[in-house]
C-alpha cells in the first residue's frame, strides 16, 4: 500500500457528495447595502468559501448588517489523519456500585468539597452535580450514601476552599466555573491549582497527599487538565454519575 491510499479526503456535504457546501452567519459593523454585501463576500472568500453567495442580508439599525452566506469550502480534510479521541478512561457505575466500591476499599465515606470560586456566582453547575436533585435524571452526589458532600456555594475565595479541604480532609475538590468573560474561568482554575500545590507541598499527585482537583464548566474545551494544573476537566452536560464514577476510578484503589 502506498501512503496515498491511506488518505481519506472529505469535504462538507450539502446534498451531493463532494459539493463542499456550508452555511455561515455573521454581522459586519457597516450600513446595509451593496457595498456591505461585497465586504461579506470578501470575508467569505478569505474564510475559504469559493464561490460564495449572500442569501440574506438585513440592516440591524443604521450601522450594522447581518448576513447569511452559503459557499463551497475550498479546504480539504484528511479524515484518515484524524485520530480517534480517547474515550472515557473510567467505567460508568451506578450509585449502588459507587457506594459499594467506596465502602469496600476506603472503609469510610469519600469526602468531596465543592464550590464556585472567584467572582463566579453561578452555582447551577456545582449544584447540578452535588445537590440531591442532580441533573439529567441522575441524583447528585449528596444522594450517595458513601459520599460526604460539602457544598460551599458561590464566590468562594481560594484560600477558604483550601482551608475547608484541609479541615474536612477532602478526597476531592470540585470546582465549577461558568463565567468566561476575560477568560476568568481559566485564570481562577490555575490560581486554585497553584494554591493547592502550595498547601500540600509533599503531595505526589491528586489523591496522593492532596485532594483530587476536578474542574467543570461549559467552556473548558480548549484546555487540558495539565494546562490548568488539575486532575480532570468535565465539560457541558456532565452528569453526577460520571463524576462519581470518575472519583471511584481515581481514588479507590483495588
Amino acid at each position: 500500500m502506498t501512503v496515498e491510499t491511506l488518505k481519506q479526503i472529505i469535504r462538507p456535504y450539502g446534498d451531493t457528495t463532494g459539493d463542499a457546501m456550508i452555511q455561515v452567519s455573521f454581522t459586519l459593523p457597516v450600513p446595509h447595502g451593496p457595498r456591505a454585501e461585497l465586504a461579506a463576500l470578501q470575508l467569505a472568500g478569505k474564510m475559504g468559501l469559493s464561490p460564495a453567495s449572500v442569501v440574506h442580508s438585513k440592516a440591524m439599525g443604521p450601522d450594522f448588517t447581518f448576513f447569511i452566506v452559503y459557499g463551497k469550502a475550498t479546504h480539504l480534510i484528511d479524515y484518515a489523519g484524524i485520530e480517534v479521541p480517547e474515550g472515557r478512561e473510567f467505567e460508568l457505575l451506578t450509585p449502588a456500585e459507587v457506594n459499594a466500591a467506596v465502602k469496600a476499599s476506603l472503609g469510610r465515606r469519600l469526602v468531596v468539597v465543592g464550590a464556585c470560586i472567584g467572582t463566579d456566582a453561578h452555582t447551577v453547575g456545582i449544584d447540578a452535580i452535588l445537590n440531591v436533585k442532580g441533573f439529567a435524571g441522575e441524583k447528585g452526589l449528596e444522594y450517595y450514601r458513601e459520599i460526604e458532600v460539602h457544598n460551599m456555594g458561590a464566590q468562594v475565595a481560594v484560600d477558604e476552599l483550601v482551608d475547608r479541604a484541609k479541615s474536612v480532609n477532602a478526597d476531592a475538590v470540585l470546582v465549577s466555573q461558568v463565567v468566561t468573560q476575560k477568560s476568568a474561568h481559566i485564570h481562577n482554575t490555575k490560581q486554585m491549582a497553584a494554591a493547592f500545590t502550595e498547601a500540600y507541598p509533599t503531595s505526589l499527585t491528586g489523591g496522593l497527599g492532596r485532594p483530587l482537583l476536578i474542574v467543570g464548566g461549559p467552556r473548558f474545551d480548549t484546555v487540558t487538565p495539565s494546562d490548568l494544573g488539575v486532575d480532570r476537566v468535565f465539560g457541558k452536560g456532565t452528569t453526577p454519575g460520571e463524576v462519581a464514577s470518575y472519583l471511584v476510578h481515581a481514588l479507590v484503589r483495588e
Binding site: M60, T119, D120, A121, A154, Q155, V179
Partner: peptide
C-alpha cells in the same frame, strides 16, 4: 427594534 423594556443585567455576584 421594538423592545419596550430594557433590563441591564448586573455583574455576576453583585447580589453578594
Amino acid at each position: 427594534e421594538g423592545a419596550d423594556v430594557i433590563a441591564v443585567i448586573r455583574s455576576t455576584g453583585q447580589s453578594l
